[in-house]
Design a protein around this nucleic acid. Structure first.
Ligand SMILES: [Mn+2]
Ligand SMILES: [Mn+2]
Ligand SMILES: [Zn+2]
Ligand SMILES: [Zn+2]
Lengths: 141, 141
DNA sequence: TTTCTTGTTTGTAATCATTACAGTCAATAT
DNA sequence: ATATTGACTGTAATGATTACAAACAAGAAA
């Protein structure tokens, strides 16, 4: 279900994008940490390993990934952009306690509204907020 | 269906919030312009009429409205916050051509995902992007 | 009426995420 | 070796939002 690092790398090659060290490290991070990170989270995670890494490079790279369809962006209400390596249609749930963003399987056909009958729909986003199961259990202790 | 200016004003009174000139003007704008405006749009629309109006006041007032449940916020992907006077559950569609944000009736029961069976859901947001009917017609000319 | 109190509004400065830009660097081709 | 191209970096600029303190307005108390 999760896209593999190897298949994503191949996709970059297919699109004639050079496999630079920084790009591969960022791609690897996105593929193995499915946490919908912000640019800063990616930067913080990698700049120990790549001390010369610039935050601008993280911006450039993630926005490049979005352009070529390897990532999508997620707008949370906190006025910050998060990046998601999963590009197939799915929804999200953000926990108000632990701030974790979960993936949610949704039936995309349940969402056709007759208000949009003559509209051209390119993209849909379903976003839930509330308290996750883990945090609910902690609350009850 | 749309909340009236009078009922919203009454709600402020019920919550012991003073009906200052600025608050009433901003409330009136929100009630009669259902365009999901940004803070700047509200400010631009009103500062001719109220030359002393400060953008800080628009921020303070709209955030106050959100706190007391008169407005909700909308996160579009452009990293800007929009304010909505409609607080009942509904979805949105943003046109990529004209940037207009439409309200969309949705069946909120279509949204139960079994992934969230043991989660506590406080809020849900459904957001579409694409091209609206008007812009599609223009395109065909 | 004057003074006091409380909450509102204002303007400026600070913050934070993001983007623009220009110089540097690295890989490859000639 | 030199030239070309694109990637990376650091710094500066931008734009939205928030913090904060002074000014203001309205009503209550004296
Ligand atoms: Mn996701
Ligand atoms: Mn709406
Ligand atoms: Zn949680
Ligand atoms: Zn349109």
């Amino acid at each position: 279900m999760n896209p593999t690092y190897e298949s994503l790398k191949q996709e970059l090659l297919n699109q004639d994008i050079k496999l630079s060290h920084q790009r591969l490290k960022i791609l690897e991070f996105m593929a193995s940490n499915v946490i919908h990170p912000t640019v800063d989270q990616v930067y913080q995670a990698l700049h120990h390993e790549i001390p010369t890494l610039s935050k601008t490079t993280v911006y450039n790279t993630l926005n490049l990934f979005v352009e070529v369809g390897l990532c999508i962006t997620l707008a949370t209400e906190e006025n910050e952009i998060r990046y998601d390596i999963h590009t197939f249609p799915h929804g999200h749930f953000k926990c108000k306690k632990c701030n974790q963003v979960y993936n949610v399987d949704i039936d995309s056909h349940a969402f056709t509204s007759k208000d949009l009958a003559h509209f051209e729909i390119h993209h849909q986003e379903v976003f839930y907020k509330g308290i996750c199961e883990k945090c609910l259990l902690i609350q009850k202790l």
